[in-house]
């Protein structure tokens, strides 16, 4: 069997497992995005209780490794199983990695994204906010007209990175949670293939290739969105679109 054929076989074998990684990312990112907006506003709030609680959440989830967070969520869910999930008849759902995985990812990406949004929130031009208030806009209108568009534009490059980190982090789900039947992600499947023939070069390389290609797709799409967000800036002031940079930190 030639090398190209071997690679092609692996690509085919990993296609279905890739759907699990995509599922984990796609289910947790939108929820995390929404929660992060609220949390960032919370941290920015003038109410000290709201602000402290939001900061504490962000601090806790950014300050501990995601790897540990998976174990933590799993053991908590496991402990709650006999008293809550089983009696309620939802154990099949609550104990599934397809639920716990996104749960842990959402909790984590919410914290990271909220910190990104919070930083961006603080760069929203005070004068533009003031002008909106001076024209009689309500708080919600000020948010929609000024805060949101400025915040999301400033946050976008960093958020793009967060999205790719989170996608990479989906490889941790089945490292920490039980694999049920045929539900295997790219990493599981690559490990399984490796254990069959101990080909050290092939399987993990193709697995990595999957992540690389999808990451490039993410950067491409997010870059297009960014170009649209930046269209009001004069060309010379436009920073480069977010691009794939080498040496991102994979462990967090």
């Amino acid at each position: 069997m030639g090398l190209l054929e071997a690679i092609w076989t692996d690509i085919q074998l990993l296609a279905f497992p890739a759907l699990f990684n995509i599922y984990f990312a796609a289910s947790s990112l939108p929820i995390g995005f929404g929660l992060a907006v609220l949390l960032a506003l919370g941290k920015n709030s003038r109410n000290p209780v709201v602000s402290r609680l939001s900061s504490a959440y962000i601090y806790a989830f950014r300050g501990s490794p995601l790897f540990i967070q998976f174990f933590m969520f799993y053991s908590i869910m496991l402990a709650l199983n006999p008293i809550w999930w089983r009696p309620m008849g939802i154990a099949w759902f609550a104990m599934s990695p397809l639920f716990i995985g996104p749960l842990a990812l959402v909790m984590n990406t919410t914290a990271y994204t909220a910190e990104i949004f919070y930083g961006a929130l603080r760069t929203v031009p005070k004068g533009e906010l003031e002008a909106a208030r001076a024209f009689g806009m309500s708080r919600l209108q000020v948010f929609r007209t000024v805060t949101w568009p400025n915040m999301i534009r400033v946050a976008w490059p960093a958020y793009t990175n967060e999205v790719t980190f989170l996608f990479h982090a989906t490889a941790l789900v089945y490292f920490t949670l039980p694999v049920i039947g045929n539900q295997k992600d790219i990493m599981n499947k690559a490990t399984e293939l490796f254990e069959r023939d101990f080909n050290v070069f092939l399987h993990f390389s193709v697995a990595g290739l999957y992540f690389l290609v999808i990451t490039m797709a993410i950067f491409f799409v997010f870059g297009l969105v960014y170009a649209r967000m930046m269209r009001h800036m004069p060309k010379e002031r436009q920073p480069h679109r977010p691009r794939l940079r080498f040496g991102p930190k994979y462990i967090r």
Partner: peptide, 10 residues
Amino acid sequence: FQQFNLWSHM
């Protein structure tokens, strides 16, 4: 305003 404060993205 002195600094115009136009909404820059519009």
